[in-house]
C-alpha cells in the first residue's frame, strides 16, 4: 500500500465501505469519524498504515445483523438527521461518547459532539437521540 494513503481512502476506495463520508478533509467536520481500537479519530487525517493490526469500526459495524444499535434507533425516533451526510460520523462519535460516559450530561454531549458538524437539521434532534439512547 502507498504510505501516503489515508484510512478514509482505504475504507472507501479499496474496501468499498462508503458509509464513512469525506467532508472537509482537514479533520474539522467529523463526517469521517471512525473508531480505531475504540478511539475516535478522523479517517481523513490518519495514515492508513497507523491502523495496521487495529480494529476499525465504521457506521457499517454498528448494527448487529439486521438489528440496529440502540443509538441508531434513537436517531430515527428522535429525528437526529435530515440529509444524512453527517450521520455516519455523528453515530460513530456518539457511540464513542456513550462508551466513555454511560449517562452523559447535556454539557458533556455538547462538548463531545462539538466537532461533528450538521448543516441541515441542527443539533437538538441529535442531542435528544443521544440522551434517549443513554437512558
Amino acid at each position: 500500500m502507498r504510505a501516503d494513503r489515508r484510512l478514509i481512502d482505504v475504507l472507501r476506495d479499496d474496501l468499498g465501505s462508503t458509509g464513512t463520508k469525506e467532508g472537509c478533509s482537514i479533520g474539522v467536520c467529523g463526517a469521517c469519524s471512525v473508531l480505531v481500537d475504540g478511539e475516535l479519530l478522523s479517517a481523513c487525517l490518519l495514515p492508513a498504515v497507523f491502523a495496521d493490526g487495529s480494529v476499525v469500526v465504521t457506521v457499517e459495524g454498528l448494527a448487529q445483523g439486521d438489528e440496529l444499535s440502540p443509538l441508531q434507533v434513537a436517531f430515527i425516533r428522535e429525528g437526529g438527521f435530515q440529509c444524512g451526510i453527517c450521520t455516519p460520523g455523528q453515530l460513530i462519535a456518539a457511540t464513542a461518547l456513550l462508551a466513555e460516559h454511560r449517562r452523559p450530561s447535556d454539557a458533556e454531549i455538547r462538548e463531545w459532539m462539538m466537532g461533528n458538524l450538521c448543516r441541515c437539521t441542527g443539533y437538538h434532534g441529535i442531542t435528544r437521540a443521544i440522551k434517549a439512547a443513554a437512558a
Binding site: 479533520g27 478522523s42 463531545w112
Partner: peptide
C-alpha cells in the same frame, strides 16, 4: 485543543 478526534491523534 480542537476536538476529541484531534486530541486522540
Amino acid at each position: 485543543v480542537a476536538t476529541v478526534r484531534v486530541r486522540n491523534q
